[in-house]
Amino acid sequence: MPDTARTMPLVRRLRWRRLFGTRAVSVLIYVLVMWLIVRAALQGAAAMGYNWQWYRIPDYVLERTDAGFQPGELLVGLGATLLLSASAFALALTMGLVVALLRLSDLVIGRATARVFLEIVRNVPLLVLLYVFYYVMGPIFGLNRYLASILCLGVYHAALVSEIIRAGINSVARGQWEAATSIGMTRTQIYRFVILPQSVRFMLPPLTGEAVNMIKSSAIVSVIAVAELTTAGRNIISDTYLSFEIWFTVAALYLAVTLCLSMLVARLEDRFVLGS
């Protein structure tokens, strides 16, 4: 008897779960929630008398001129953001690799240098680091705002990248080192031909995350007026007061780029898994 008493509510619970588990119900709930959020936002905007002018936005993305379509201000800004992020990421990868190898080396000085670098970069806010690079290092080494931004973002992300690379290297089995060592390869050769190619598989997912972070954190250089996507958005808004539309568009552009990047790397990963 106690058995049926216990199973009855369980059956009912399972039935509920099965109902919520169906695709139609899930989609319905999702649409409902999104509709509530959007409606609340629109009502709020209407209440403050915001005048939506979405029709003006396409021109800032793709400008229609007599010569045909030209990239608008936002698209130009996006291009600058991508170039900035790519250069800074290349720098972060190189520095990250060096720092990781130093940390794994037998050299006491190498390990100490790497530790000091990591502790400093990890414990200083990105914005402060940017000010240091632009207002302090800038005048000393004659860096323009663009170079200062690349260096700052590169150094900041190198710390995180180096941890990813170190973990990737450590995840390669010890026996691989021994086998490569026993055929007389040098340390450099072992890293290059045996260890790093194998650790790429472990590093790719977290490195993608880091690249996405890089693109997002590159927005911070708008505070020193580097002409990239966020700066372009700010400039347009100060001319037109279209703040809602422009910020939504800017956010959507960042989202589109980072989603594309994630999908691209997901495909790359499949290829690496096949090789192993």
Partner: peptide, 12 residues
């Protein structure tokens, strides 16, 4: 030359 218990071939 050395041969290991776990083979240690390069899997990639």
């Amino acid at each position: 030359g050395m041969v290991f218990q776990q083979f240690n071939l390069f899997p990639h």
